[in-house]
Design a protein around this nucleic acid. Sequence first.
DNA 1: TCAACGAATTAGAACAATTCTAAACTGTGA
DNA 2: TCACAGTTTAGAATTGTTCTAATTCGTTGA
Lengths: 143, 143
Amino acid sequence: MAKALREPKDTSAQAIARLREAGLRPTRQRVELAGVLFQSGDRHVTAESLHDEVAQTGVKVSLATVYNTLHQFTEAGLLRQVIVDASRSYFDTNTGDHQHFFVEKEGLLIDIPGESIAVAGVPAPPAGLSVDRVDVVVRVRRN
Amino acid sequence: MAKALREPKDTSAQAIARLREAGLRPTRQRVELAGVLFQSGDRHVTAESLHDEVAQTGVKVSLATVYNTLHQFTEAGLLRQVIVDASRSYFDTNTGDHQHFFVEKEGLLIDIPGESIAVAGVPAPPAGLSVDRVDVVVRVRRN
DNA sequence: TCAACGAATTAGAACAATTCTAAACTGTGA
DNA sequence: TCACAGTTTAGAATTGTTCTAATTCGTTGA
C-alpha cells in the first residue's frame, strides 16, 4: 500500500540516484526531466512534447536544455533514439531489445517486445562493415 | 551490341514513356530527373544529391522542383521514400520488396533483397490499426 | 559555511532541410 | 497557333535542431 503512493520526494530521490549512476550531475532541470520520463512506464517523447509536458508541471526548462538532456540521457544509455519520421526525433525510455509499431498520422509509437519478433536471413554486410543493430518499424494506419 | 550503346534520345524516350504511364506530364525537368534516376540500376538519392548531380549534366533544375518531383514520383509509385536518418530523406528507385543496410557515418544505403530477409512474429497491431508495411534497417558501421 | 571553479542552463541567433508563395513559363488539345 | 491548366522557379518562410556567449548553479576543499 505504501508503495502505491509515492511522494514527489521519492520520485526525485530515484531520479537523482539514476542520474548519479549515469555520471550526470543532478541539476534541477535534469532531475525534473528524469522524473517526468522515468516515473511512469515506457514512454516515447519528442523534444517538443517533453518540453511542453515539463512546462505544464510549472518547472521552467528551456528547449535547448531539453535537447541537451535528451542527448546526454541517450549517450548515458538511459534513452534510446528512434528514427521513424523524417521530420522529428523520438526518444524511448525503453532501452531494451524491442521494436515498434508506428502510426504515422498521429506520430504514435507502440512497443513490440523483442522476444516476440525475429528478423531472419540478414545477409552478412559487405566487407569492412559490421552490424550495429537491426531496427524494425511496422508502419500501421487507422482503418 | 546495339543494346549496349543507348543514345541519349533513347533514354529520354524511355523516361517520357515512364512519365506518361505514371500520368505525369513529361516536362523538360521531369524527363531529365527521370533519366538520371532510372537509367542506371537501383539508386538511392537525397534531394540535394540529385540536385547536384543534375546540375552537373548542365541542365538547370531548381531545388524546389527536385523536391516536388521526388514527391510526385513517390506518389506515382516510381520511387520509395526511405527513412533512416533524422536529418534527411532518401529516395530509392527500387520500389520492390526489399530492405536496407545503412552506414550512418557516410549516409550510404545498400539494398537487401526481400527474398533473403524475413521478419517473423510481428504481433497483430492494436485494434483499429492495420499494417501498412514492415521496414527493416540494418545499421552498420565501418570496422 | 563559503568561496571558487568548472559544469550546466539559457535566450536568442544560426542553421539545414524542406515547404510555401505568387509570378513567369510551358505542354497540350483544339 | 492560342489559350489555359499544369509546372517551374526564386526567394521567403517554416520547422526542427544546434550553436554561442553570457549567466547561473552544484560541488569540493578549506
